[in-house]
């Protein structure tokens, strides 16, 4: 059973609907116990870094997420669910993240006024290495983004894919059982559904 963590950070329904349309059983949960028992764990969410950390702390979820990351359960972070894996963010300085991936989250500050923030719309992935989630995808597929901050890992070895927007930023990370995307697979049509299917098919 796939656990999708609902911690008050925006709409988790689209992720749930995407898995459901692929025929997978999903539990929407904020219970650490359910998360620990799940075969797969998804941390979605949109909004601010500080709010996300506060909501996770208020619900005592940080321990369950850290355990999941350690015990080899396939884990997928999406959007803010990627950013909170890092140490800190320029969005809310002083707020510690989960610290599972060393590095920081930075704000887009394009000098070119034609580059709008948020980075919103369809952009390409360039795979640095092909994670199992990329099975069956085009070489440089288009995926849907909406974000104003991007992740900068201390160790580039965690980067699975990059995307160009003012800078070249890490748009997907992969370390062992942990996957996380800055883009929204649940909004990326066939490409995104294929990634979610690949994730759901991962075995511990």
């Amino acid at each position: 059973m796939i656990a999708v963590i609902d911690y008050g950070m925006g709409n988790v329904r689209s992720v749930v609907k995407a898995f459901a349309s692929l025929g997978y059983e999903v539990s929407i949960t904020c219970s650490p116990k359910v998360i620990e028992r799940a075969s797969h764990v998804v941390l979605p969410g949109v909004g601010a870094f500080g709010d996300a950390m506060q909501e996770l702390n208020n619900r005592n979820l940080t321990g369950a997420i850290r355990d999941t990351a350690r015990d080899g359960t396939p884990f997928l972070g999406i959007c803010i669910g990627l950013q909170v894996l890092f140490d800190s963010s320029e969005e809310n300085p002083g707020v510690p993240g989960l610290g599972l991936i060393p590095g920081t989250v930075k704000r887009f500050q394009p000098a070119d006024p034609e580059l709008k923030v948020p980075h919103m719309g369809w952009n390409r992935l360039t795979f640095v290495r092909r994670p199992p989630l990329a099975e069956g995808l085009a070489e440089n597929p288009f995926v849907y983004f909406v974000h104003s901050f991007y992740t900068a890992p201390a160790d580039e070895a965690v980067t699975a894919a990059t995307t160009e927007y003012d800078v070249t930023f890490t748009s997907m990370i992969w370390r062992d059982n942990m996957f996380a995307t800055q883009f929204h697979p649940e909004k990326s049509q066939a490409t995104g559904l294929q990634m979610l299917k690949n994730f759901a098919e991962l075995k511990i």
């Binding site: 329904r13 689209s14 609907k17 995407a18 459901a20 349309s21 849907y144 909406v146 649940e186 909004k187 990326s188 049509q189 995104g192 559904l193």
Partner: peptide, 8 residues
């Protein structure tokens, strides 16, 4: 719609 379309 949202159950069938995975587009913003």
């Amino acid at each position: 719609t949202a159950a069938q379309i995975f587009l913003p």
